[in-house]
């Protein structure tokens, strides 16, 4: 009888399970892995870092995982701080060393997916230092804009992960030119501020001397 294979979705967004793009995108990959016989589980990194007890139980889950899908938003060219803190613990304590395989999905709020490259390099480096196998990753731009396309496009990526075959690097086409993204985005932020009656203070400088 084949041993059970465990896949874990590690959500690195502060919005967590059920409320984040990271969950929706990573969840798509997890669904496919489940169809391939993996036992699946989700874990929210920020919740895991909330207390020493939460951290210990999260690390136990990591230690039992054969496949970890880390799905997260790009924060200043890297990961959100709690994700780095969590990975520091994993690497220092060699949790999952020689067993876990890592795949990463990063989405940024810019149209250029290339902006995720440094974070992907950091993820690969983590895998090497922790003794995990590096399966690769996808960096997504404009994820918030065309979420449905992204979720659909991730299916073949998940199939490749499950089957151990080469992972497609081209996930989706560009939704719109960068100049249009910037133009539309700038309008969107003004509308968002208007909703909070904050249009006039959008450019405020509270810390100016």
């Amino acid at each position: 009888m084949m041993a059970e294979r465990r896949a874990l979705l590690l959500i690195g967004s502060p919005r967590g399970i059920g409320h984040s793009t990271s969950d929706r995108l990573g969840g798509r990959v997890l669904d496919v892995l489940k169809e391939h016989g993996f036992l699946t589980e989700k874990l929210h990194v920020h919740a895991a870092m909330a207390s020493p007890q939460e951290l210990e139980s999260a690390l136990a889950v990591i230690g039992a995982a054969d496949m970890v899908i880390l799905s997260l938003p790009l924060y200043v060219d890297s990961f959100p701080a709690p994700v780095i803190a969590f990975l520091e613990q994993i690497a220092e304590r060699r949790i999952g060393a020689g067993r876990a395989r890592l795949f990463v999905i990063i989405q940024c709020g810019f149209p250029e997916k290339e902006q995720n490259a440094t974070a992907l390099a950091i993820a690969e480096r983590f895998a090497a230092e922790a003794g995990w196998s590096w399966l690769g990753g996808v960096g997504l731009g404009e994820a918030e804009w065309q979420h449905k396309d992204v979720a659909r496009a991730l299916a073949p990526v998940a199939e490749a992960i499950a089957n151990g075959t080469a992972i497609p690097q081209s996930v989706l086409r560009k939704a719109m030119p960068a100049w249009l993204y910037r133009f539309g985005g700038n309008i969107m932020w003004r509308l968002a501020a208007r909703k909070h009656h904050a249009t006039r203070s959008l450019r405020a400088r509270p810390y100016a001397e």
Partner: peptide, 21 residues
Amino acid sequence: FGGVSSELKKAVDRMLPDILP
């Protein structure tokens, strides 16, 4: 991991107010 520590990153992430949308 080639990047900055979690201690530094917790401050860098909170720099967002200094940036315009």
